[in-house]
Simulated assay, not measured.
Amino acid sequence: MTPHMSISTMDLDHADRCRRALAEEQAASLAATDGWAHVDKDQVHRDWHDLYGEIAAAITAGATPEDAAVQELVGRHYAIASRFYAPSRVAYIGMALLYAEDDGMRTWHNSYHPRMVEFLGAAMLRYAGSAL
């Protein structure tokens, strides 16, 4: 993956595979865990809130999605998401697509920084390609 790759320039067939993987993995996990009953959802939201504040600060400071410090932050994002279930590489990319394509998710994420969805999506793509 090049540093310039983004979810908006992703191959359409690959994007569809990623969306399907996310939907299938989430549905299987929800069914197997009684709707993610094992997850402390309030703690997850607090942890994501803190993390998104750190990512917003990194964006403001001029970081790039491929920076090692940003990739460490995305590793934390993946770890938080994995409290529900450990998404596969393609499902994790599907999550980045969800953030960009769902109006509520886009608005919520971009409330931390106007470029959050774009930046986080690119960082998640990099992370998925190198760590998953």
Score class of each variant (00 low, 15 high):
residue 102 D to K: 11
residue 82 S to V: 11
residue 69 A to Q: 14
residue 91 A to F: 01
residue 106 R to V: 00
residue 41 K to W: 10
residue 79 A to Q: 14
residue 84 F to N: 09
residue 78 Y to V: 14
residue 77 H to D: 14
residue 87 P to A: 05
residue 58 A to V: 01
residue 96 A to G: 15
residue 93 I to S: 01
residue 106 R to I: 00
residue 64 T to P: 00
residue 62 G to W: 03
residue 44 V to L: 10
residue 68 A to C: 01
residue 73 L to S: 09
residue 72 E to W: 01
residue 103 D to C: 01
residue 64 T to H: 11
residue 48 W to R: 15
residue 44 V to P: 08
residue 67 D to N: 12
residue 74 V to A: 03
residue 73 L to P: 04
residue 60 T to R: 11
residue 77 H to W: 08
residue 97 L to P: 10
residue 90 V to T: 15
residue 72 E to A: 12
residue 62 G to R: 12
residue 71 Q to D: 08
residue 52 Y to R: 13
residue 84 F to L: 06
residue 48 W to D: 13
residue 101 E to L: 03
residue 58 A to Y: 02
residue 49 H to C: 00
residue 66 E to F: 04
residue 98 L to A: 12
residue 46 R to F: 00
residue 71 Q to K: 05
residue 105 M to T: 13
residue 71 Q to L: 06
residue 59 I to F: 04
residue 104 G to Q: 04
residue 57 A to Y: 05
residue 98 L to R: 10
residue 68 A to V: 12
residue 81 A to D: 13
residue 44 V to I: 15
residue 42 D to L: 05
residue 51 L to F: 12
residue 85 Y to E: 05
residue 75 G to E: 13
residue 41 K to M: 11
residue 68 A to Y: 09
residue 65 P to L: 02
residue 66 E to I: 12
residue 51 L to K: 13
residue 88 S to W: 09
residue 86 A to M: 02
residue 44 V to H: 10
residue 75 G to P: 11
residue 37 A to L: 11
residue 62 G to F: 06
residue 107 T to S: 12
residue 39 V to H: 05
residue 58 A to D: 11
residue 80 I to S: 02
residue 64 T to M: 08
residue 79 A to N: 08
residue 103 D to K: 12
residue 106 R to W: 13
residue 93 I to G: 01
residue 68 A to T: 14
residue 99 Y to I: 13
residue 98 L to K: 11
residue 80 I to M: 03
residue 92 Y to C: 05
residue 78 Y to K: 11
residue 80 I to K: 01
residue 55 I to C: 00
residue 97 L to V: 09
residue 41 K to H: 15
residue 44 V to D: 12
residue 37 A to C: 08
residue 48 W to I: 15
residue 80 I to N: 06
residue 107 T to V: 12
residue 106 R to Q: 08
residue 76 R to H: 10
residue 74 V to I: 15
residue 45 H to V: 07
residue 46 R to G: 00
residue 67 D to V: 02
residue 88 S to Y: 08
residue 106 R to E: 08
residue 106 R to P: 00
residue 61 A to W: 07
residue 90 V to I: 04
residue 82 S to C: 07
residue 89 R to T: 12
residue 70 V to D: 04
residue 103 D to E: 15
residue 69 A to F: 03
residue 75 G to M: 10
residue 98 L to T: 06
residue 97 L to R: 07
residue 43 Q to E: 15
residue 58 A to I: 03
residue 86 A to F: 01
residue 89 R to C: 04
residue 95 M to L: 14
residue 75 G to D: 14
residue 43 Q to S: 13
residue 92 Y to G: 02
residue 81 A to Y: 10
residue 89 R to H: 08
residue 58 A to G: 03
